[in-house]
Every structure is written in C-alpha cells, then in structure tokens.
Design a protein around this nucleic acid. Structure first.
Lengths: 152, 152
DNA sequence: CTGACTGCAAAATGTTTGCAGATTC
DNA sequence: GAATCTGCAAACATTTTGCAGTCAG
C-alpha cells in the first residue's frame, strides 16, 4: 500500500494539486475499490472504511481530479453521474445494461474516425464526445435474472 | 392554428392521453416554438405568452409526452436535460457547441451500423443509444463571439 | 360518476457555496 | 505567511410528491 500511496501522491503533484490527506484518500480509494462509481458510492465506501471526508470535499476533489485528467466523468441518460479512474487507460465508450446496471466498455476506432469526418463536414471542432449504448447484456438476456447492479 | 390544434388533440388521443387545455398548450407550444428546448425555457415561454400552467403540470406532461413518443428527451453531459419534438423526424445525433450552446443534428448510418456490430460482438442487445459530440461550432470558431445560446 | 389531471406548496435529490479555521508549500 | 484546503451548514437548481379540488370521458 505504501508504494501505491506514493504513486497517488506523485500523480497529484504532477498535476499541480496540493497533496492532502483527503485527496490521497479519495484518489486511492477511487482507484482501488472501483471500476466505475457514483459519487454517493464513493462517499459511502469511504465512510464504511472509516475515512472521514466531508461531502463537500469529495465533490470538490472529484471535480479537480476530473479536471486534471485523473478521473473521467460520465452522465447516464437519467441524470446520474458516474466516474472512473483513468490510469492511462485508453479512451472508450460504454454499454449500459438497463436490466442489471452493469457497464461494459468498448472501443471502435472506425466510429471515432467517422465522427471526425462528420465534424469536419459541419465545420465543427470536436473537443470530446459521449457514446453510450443502452441495452441488455448477455447475462440478462440469458438468465433474465435482474441481478442487482454493482456498478463496480 | 385551428387545424394544428386539432392535430395536436388527435395526437394526444391516439396515444391514449386525455386531452386537456394544459396538454394541448404544452404540446403545441413545444412543437411550434422550439427545435430543442429545456424545461425551464418552455415554462418561461408559456408564461410570457400568457399561458398559465403550473411547473408540476409541465414536468408531468413532458414525461407523458416522452413516454408516448411525442417528444424525445436528451441529457447533456452537464446534467442538463433538453427535449425535442418528434413529429416523425428521423433518429439523429447531436453536436453541442460548448461556446454558444447551439445544438446541431447529424446522422451517420455507418456509425449506427458499427454500433450494432460491436453489440453483436459483446452479446449485447442494443435498445437505444446516445451520441453527443461536444465542441466548437463554425460560428464560434470564426467570430469567437460567445453569443448567448438560444437553444431554439 | 370515477379515475385522471391540475395547482400549490412542501419535499427530495444531487451538487455547490460562503465562511472561518486548518494546512500545504 | 500566502494561497489553498477543509468541514459545516445553508443554498441551489431541478424535478417530484401529497393533497384537495376540478375536469374529461
């Protein structure tokens, strides 16, 4: 854990963020306990693990971490916001199972290319994009078991 | 206007919605005054035009109209929700200008096709999807004038 | 006439903010 | 020691809800 902690500290410093107990906790917790998570999940998890951080600090820190590229933020179509650690992971899109809430990732370079093309056609300079496919995952299609979403 | 009014009434009936003064007003106003709109814009516009409808009714009605396929609802990546009339218009995606808020539409069949392909690969049954490109529109790239968003 | 719809005001949700004191650099 | 954090509680924006009265079918 010491090693990892250090690396989190470094990552904060690299981005010009002050290193505080709270930020180390939030970043490491987000990276080690979650794949994708909602703000309230992080809040609850930190609390369960006995790490005291105020709601305000969590939100402020999440915003910083997103801004500095350590986390990504995504919005589901139902005004829910989730985050994911970046960790040098490639850009990717999401499929969200409407049945169990599971989130799958995928990349499709060709789609990216086509988007750029469309933008060029419209004189639009793309900065970022969101592609989400809502549907039913393999497991739910089979078992039909509406298992509880873990989002993690 | 009488003709249009009738058609709105019909459209409500067709979908099994009761026809009320408020619903007629909301649907016709949404269809005639807006391309894309936010709930609060509709609320304000109705008010400006002297149509009294309570906030609660507007929200409840928007939900009904979306459910019955007369409007579509979309979420921007910053937890803002906008609506658009359906009116038999084709499915399309959106480009959102982060500078002036303008919303452009586009379709790219090839992208749709590739999405289906990816889903098949993952055993995922697609139900719907969202593709939004955030960026800077032609006008803003030129003039740099951060004009006020009209969203209409 | 009954169930569905409406307005109102209050509640809920999820996130942000002002402030005073603590902390980092 | 200056600028930046933090916690707290209050504020916020948006949407939803309970309730009692009204209206469509």
């Amino acid at each position: 854990m010491g090693r990892l902690e250090e690396s989190y500290e470094e990552r904060l410093k690299e981005r010009g963020l002050r290193v505080t107990r709270e930020r180390r906790m939030i970043l490491s917790h987000a990276c080690e306990h979650f794949g994708h998570f909602y703000a309230h999940e992080l809040l609850e998890s930190l609390d369960r693990h006995g790490f005291r951080v105020s709601r305000a600090t969590v939100y402020r820190t999440l915003a910083h971490l997103v801004e500095k590229g350590l986390l990504r933020r995504h919005e589901l179509g139902d005004r829910k916001t989730f985050y994911e650690p970046v960790l040098g992971r490639e850009h990717h899109e999401h499929m969200v199972c409407v049945c169990c809430g599971k989130i799958l990732e995928f990349i499709q370079d060709e789609i990216e290319r086509l988007q750029d093309q469309v933008c060029r056609q419209h004189g639009f300079r793309p900065l970022s994009h969101t592609l989400q496919i809502q549907g039913i995952c393999r497991t739910c299609r089979r078992g039909g078991r509406g298992e509880i979403a873990s989002h993690g």
